[in-house]
Amino acid sequence: MIMKNSVLFACLMMLATFAVAQQNESNEQPKGFKRENMFFGSSLNLSLGNRFFNVGINPELGYSLNKWLDAGVALNINYFSQNASDFSNTRFRNFNYGAGTFLRIWPVNFLHLQVQPEYNWISSSQKNVITGQSARYNYNAESLLVGIGYGSRAVGSQYSYVTLMIDVLQNINSPYRDQFNDPLPVFRAGFGVYLNRKKQ
């Protein structure tokens, strides 16, 4: 229940930020939807560590609300594997897909902060390497990724970025936490274009 409330709180904070951003921009630019502010892109998700590996793709569709704020929706497809260790005899192979929203804040033109609540559906294959027993599980989990990144962004043209995030919720089923519930670092390298690019 606490995790669901955290995701709901993050979504409400994003909506509040949208409203404030729109109000601030109303004095600078004419009101209304601008097609050249819509963008489509994708990022590659990758994390490596001692005995674990995670890779995925994350297509996104968003809108630049102003010169410093992007918001949108994103999908994710991930594969995660973790080998047995001295502390656990279980080997994990997980496949998950999910969806969520994101908020990307650009305080300066090369640096951004990102908040991304997600909901994930996970299929897990687990095997005890000592006994040979294996099992499959299906479950779901919320996650709340937060992080910082470097990139470039020209509203109406294109963007690219590299972001480092972690899942700040403590849901043991999250695809971004290991079997000991420690957060896994998530690296995402993304790029995209605006749908109605401005003519140079």
Rank of each mutant, 00 (worst) to 15 (best):
G72C: 01
K34E: 15
K34V: 12
A10E: 01
N58S: 06
P30H: 10
L145K: 06
I172Y: 07
G156W: 05
C11T: 00
Q116E: 04
Q179R: 07
A21S: 12
S47C: 00
D182I: 13
V115G: 03
L164Q: 12
F187S: 11
A19T: 10
N27I: 12
G192T: 02
S43N: 08
G41H: 07
M1P: 06
R91H: 13
A19C: 09
Q170V: 13
F52M: 03
Y150G: 15
Y79E: 04
Q133W: 08
Y137P: 06
R51W: 03
F87N: 13
I166R: 08
N24T: 06
E28G: 05
Q170H: 11
Y63L: 01
N173W: 07
V20W: 09
F39T: 02
F187N: 11
P185E: 08
K198H: 11
I166H: 07
F110K: 03
F110L: 06
Y137G: 05
M38L: 13
Y139G: 10
N66Q: 11
N89F: 13
K34T: 12
Y150H: 09
N66Y: 09
L61S: 00
R153M: 05
S47Q: 01
G32T: 10
V7M: 10
I122T: 15
N50Y: 09
Q82N: 09
L61R: 00
N66V: 10
Q133E: 14
G32M: 00
M3K: 10
E25G: 01
P59N: 09
S152L: 15
F33P: 07
L195N: 08
Q179F: 08
Y159W: 14
N89T: 15
I105R: 05
G41C: 01
S64T: 12
P183H: 14
D178I: 02
S88C: 11
G32H: 05
V155I: 15
Q126Y: 03
A141V: 10
E25W: 01
Q29S: 14
R91T: 02
N181E: 00
E36S: 12
Y119D: 04
